[in-house]
């Protein structure tokens, strides 16, 4: 913090006002979404018709709350299943990648590292269509050759999981590598001197050291998977994850039930985000 600099009072107050305005701008859309989840009206807009819990718990039309709305509940489950597999795969591959990049030197390492970072700079919608085009041609080829069906390669949950995995793994790799770099290899060498096998030493010493980072990577993966839209949009089949269902509803015209879902999403994402920060902080 800089203290020793003279600044005019007017400047200071203008600056503060600007910062305040900025944070109002940040908070405004989210607050609005939350407030209208409790409006006793079928449109999420003014006038304010009074407070209600109906958009959460209501079960008679048109006031069908989130917890009685089958389509939305089903898409939340779908999103959960996708997020589970994406984070499992991303953390597993992220961990092996971290060991490879931190512990091994080999020809072409630099090129592979850049290739590993590329998913960060490819727009999500392009990742989606490239995987769609590729898997469809593979499926066509295989079906022509064998006469069997390969539904896993057609738009659907498997492709959604693969599509999200394709770029979330980069984040998992970065988070876990950062932690592995701080590991003191002499700890592992001590275990080896005491008669541990290579794999035994890694399992007993190194992996536990990485757990917080793996946990943080898992939480970040779940968060990114849950809110992903662009890649998912191109690969989705008949089972739509939550963001896709909400998007379809939004195009048709919204009711406050979407505000209620959004409120739940905001609470859960904020909690998960804080959890990932705490996990990463515990490492230092």
């Amino acid at each position: 913090m800089i203290t020793g600099i003279p600044q005019s009072g007017a400047f200071k107050w203008t600056y503060r006002a600007y910062v305040t305005l900025f944070f109002i701008y940040l908070a405004l859309p989210l607050t609005t979404v939350c407030v209208f989840a409790f409006n006793d009206s079928v449109f999420p807009s003014l006038p304010w018709e009074g407070f209600t819990w109906a958009w959460f718990f209501g079960d008679n039309a048109p006031y069908i709350g989130v917890f009685h709305e089958r389509a939305i509940l089903r898409s939340i489950v779908t999103s959960g299943v996708v997020a589970f597999w994406v984070s499992l795969l991303a953390v597993a591959v992220g961990t092996t990648n971290a060991f490879l990049f931190v512990r091994h030197d080999f020809r072409g390492k630099g090129v592979l590292y850049i290739l590993m970072l590329l998913p960060l700079i490819i727009p999500g919608i392009i990742l989606g269509i490239s995987i769609l085009v590729f898997t469809s041609s593979v499926a066509n080829y295989l079906e022509d050759a064998t006469g069997m069906w390969f539904d896993g390669l057609r738009p659907g949950l498997v492709l959604v999981i693969l599509g999200q995995f394709s770029f979330i793994t980069t984040f998992a790799t970065l988070v876990i590598s950062a932690r592995l770099q701080k590991f003191d290899p002499s700890l592992e060498e001590a275990a080896l001197n005491l008669g541990a096998t290579r794999w035994g030493a890694v399992r007993a010493i190194t992996l536990p050291f990485l757990y917080p980072a793996m946990g943080a990577a898992a939480v970040v993966s779940v968060l990114m998977s849950f809110e992903n839209f662009n890649t998912t949009l191109m690969l989705v089949g008949s089972d739509a994850p939550l963001t896709i269902t909400m998007f379809d509803r939004l195009k048709l015209g919204s009711t406050p039930v979407l505000n209620a879902v959004s409120l739940l999403l905001i609470v859960v994402s904020a909690a998960l985000g804080l959890a990932s920060l705490l996990l990463q902080k515990r490492q230092d």
Partner: peptide, 21 residues
């Protein structure tokens, strides 16, 4: 943290907020 929180939330929710406004 106040800067971070809005971005943990889905882009869809943020955009929905602007639509209501």
């Amino acid at each position: 943290l106040m800067c971070l929180i809005p971005f943990w939330v889905s882009e869809l929710v943020r955009t929905f907020g602007w639509m209501i406004l």
